[in-house]
Amino acid sequence: MGLLFNFSYSHTPQFKPMFFKFDDLGEKTINKIAEVALSTKLDKRDKLVVKVKTDPNLLAKGTLESLVIDCQGLMVENALRMESINITLNTIAVSPFKALTGNIQLTQPSRGKACVLLTEKDITRVLDRAILRNRQHEIVIDEKVIKVRLQQVNCNLLDTGKILIEGTVKLKDTEDIKQVSLEIKPKICQAGNGVIVDDIEYLEEPHLSSILLNPILEEAKSILNLKNFKVDGFSLKVKEFNIKKGALQLQAEAGMTHFPTA
Rank of each mutant, 00 (worst) to 15 (best):
residue 44 K to L: 12
residue 13 P to K: 08
residue 141 I to V: 15
residue 218 E to C: 06
residue 21 K to S: 11
residue 249 Q to L: 11
residue 57 N to F: 12
residue 262 A to D: 13
residue 64 L to N: 07
residue 184 I to A: 00
residue 24 D to L: 11
residue 157 L to R: 03
residue 66 S to V: 07
residue 31 N to S: 03
residue 57 N to I: 15
residue 248 L to V: 04
residue 95 S to F: 05
residue 227 K to Y: 10
residue 89 L to F: 06
residue 219 E to D: 11
residue 262 A to I: 09
residue 81 R to D: 06
residue 88 T to L: 08
residue 234 F to T: 10
residue 229 F to C: 02
residue 178 K to T: 07
residue 10 S to E: 14
residue 41 K to S: 09
residue 90 N to H: 09
residue 221 K to H: 01
residue 77 E to Q: 12
residue 252 A to K: 08
residue 65 E to D: 13
residue 126 V to C: 04
residue 200 I to L: 00
residue 212 L to C: 04
residue 190 Q to R: 14
residue 55 D to I: 01
residue 30 I to L: 13
residue 79 A to R: 15
residue 84 S to L: 05
residue 230 K to I: 11
residue 118 L to Y: 05
residue 249 Q to Y: 04
residue 239 K to S: 10
residue 103 N to R: 13
residue 4 L to C: 08
residue 41 K to L: 13
residue 169 V to C: 04
residue 101 T to L: 10
residue 241 F to C: 04
residue 95 S to N: 15
residue 214 N to A: 06
residue 17 P to F: 00
residue 132 L to R: 12
residue 193 N to S: 09
residue 105 Q to Y: 10
residue 136 Q to W: 03
residue 188 I to C: 05
residue 1 M to D: 08
residue 111 R to I: 12
residue 118 L to E: 04
residue 4 L to Y: 12
residue 228 N to P: 02
residue 47 K to A: 03
residue 40 T to L: 06
residue 115 C to F: 09
residue 57 N to H: 11
residue 137 H to R: 08
residue 257 T to H: 09
residue 31 N to P: 02
residue 40 T to I: 10
residue 136 Q to R: 11
residue 190 Q to I: 11
residue 129 R to G: 15
residue 219 E to N: 08
residue 233 G to C: 03
residue 224 L to V: 04
residue 170 K to L: 12
residue 97 F to E: 13
residue 39 S to R: 12
residue 244 K to L: 11
residue 220 A to R: 01
residue 221 K to Q: 05
residue 91 T to A: 09
residue 197 V to E: 01
residue 102 G to D: 06
residue 48 L to S: 05
residue 7 F to H: 14
residue 121 K to F: 08
residue 161 G to R: 07
residue 147 K to H: 09
residue 232 D to N: 10
residue 134 N to Y: 14
residue 71 C to F: 04
residue 56 P to N: 07
residue 257 T to Y: 11
residue 174 T to N: 01
residue 135 R to V: 02
residue 116 V to Y: 04
residue 151 Q to V: 12
residue 174 T to Y: 04
residue 73 G to M: 08
residue 239 K to D: 08
residue 238 V to F: 01
residue 169 V to M: 02
residue 11 H to R: 13
residue 126 V to E: 02
residue 239 K to L: 09
residue 100 L to A: 05
residue 114 A to M: 03
residue 111 R to T: 13
residue 157 L to M: 05
residue 50 V to M: 04
residue 217 L to Y: 00
residue 125 R to A: 14
residue 252 A to V: 06
